[in-house]
Amino acid sequence: MVNNNHRVIKKIGFTILVLLIVLFSIFPFIQMLSTSLKFSWDWGNPSLVPTEINTTAYSEILGLGEEVEIEIPASVQKLLDNTPNLTDEQKNAILAKYTDTSDVFPFFDYFKNSLQFSLTASLCSLLIAIFGAYSIARMKYRGQKIIQRGVLFVYMVGGILLLIPLFKISTTLGLTSSEGGTTFALVIIYIVQTLPVCLYMLGNSFRSIPFSIEEAAFIEGYSRFQTIVRIIIPLSFSAIATVWVYSFMIAWNEYLFASVFLKSYTNMYTLPIALKALFVSKNAIWDRVSAASLLTAVPVVILFMLIQKFLAGNKTEGGVKE
């Protein structure tokens, strides 16, 4: 009887511990959801359930609300019509003043920018890393060991340590003065940020494939290259998916380099810097910021849920970057 009571207490204690851990982990997300659905008069209410549901934050950010009519004052329209020597460029500049939408948050534009940067960088990095990691893990040549160790060393070098020299180099090369150059610089920086992790994780995964499988392929007449494409890649699917999600996440969440390189290109803003800009602007209000925060997190959360079953038990020890 005493023993039984003891067991029940233990079980209750354990359940409370689990609940506390879950609450600690997800409370900020619940609060985000709650605030994004509250009216401003309801913000001070400590209850997480909104008194009344307010969806304007979402409809505004996603552009679902009614389109704001562009109103150009009659006098300006007249000026535009009656001044034939204005170039198109000048006309557009005048019109832009009246169609300025800087106080709304064009979520989908930023989403598209983020997606372009993250997809390009993560896919390039993955492609380079698959062959690089195979070479490091499976092939023998002079310098192979040094490269293997070097990869781990550079992986300790954080972004802030590279920001100044990379920015100076990009300006000297003239990359930062055009949109194309800036895009190129940022994509290649994201590639190098994710490359060491990809090389390390994929290398570990390739090493775990029994060599006899490869040997059989060689006997069948496969070349090295064919072996990689037809044997190694399909066999390491889960590792490749995990590595891709990691590098996508690193690029998607990146703030530091984007904030310096994209500073003067507002139309190229990625979600993290756009969100920061929204918050410091006069329009920064909690419901919109919360809604935008939540929507920014959704893509990476979904990706992670998809690969979650690969995570535990994967040989990622010490080889994952944040």
């Binding site: 879950v22 900020p28 703030y255 993290p272 969100l275 920014t296 992670f304 979650q308 944040e322």
Partner: peptide, 24 residues
């Protein structure tokens, strides 16, 4: 389910979690 939920803080972008903490 619990294992998935516990991963959320790590997975979500820093930028989308800071404002909730500031609001708190």
């Amino acid at each position: 389910l619990v294992r998935s939920l516990v991963l959320l803080p790590y997975v979500a972008p820093v930028i989308s979690t800071v404002y909730s903490w500031q609001f708190f």
